[in-house]
Amino acid sequence: MANLKIELKGEGTIDNAAIFIDDPLEKLPHSLQKDDDTSWSLDDVSIPMSPGDDLTYTLYVVAFSGTKFSCVITDKGSGGTISFSDVTGKQIKNRAISKGDKPFSE
């Protein structure tokens, strides 16, 4: 079981954010909580996974087209992280979607 912390930081205002994390049992959306206009986060997301497993995620960000953002997912047990960054608005009028399938870095 891994205990994750997700931190999202926008260079501009982020209006809403949620992340889908695939685990062997279910696929659930986790809504991030607003810290301030540009920072959203979610702590204590528990999923059944072992060290070395890849994490499959889909991040949804609502912000004006062109807003830069970066996200860090931390495995609180091992301290390993997954980092990625993107820009909203690749599909104009649709929310930004960042998908990945990555291992945690040590």
């Binding site: 209006d15 809403n16 949620a18 991030l32 609502v62 009028k93 649709n94 929310r95």
Partner: peptide, 12 residues
Amino acid sequence: VAPAVGNTDAWT
């Protein structure tokens, strides 16, 4: 704001 997931377009 629009919900972060779903099929609707993003808006605020």
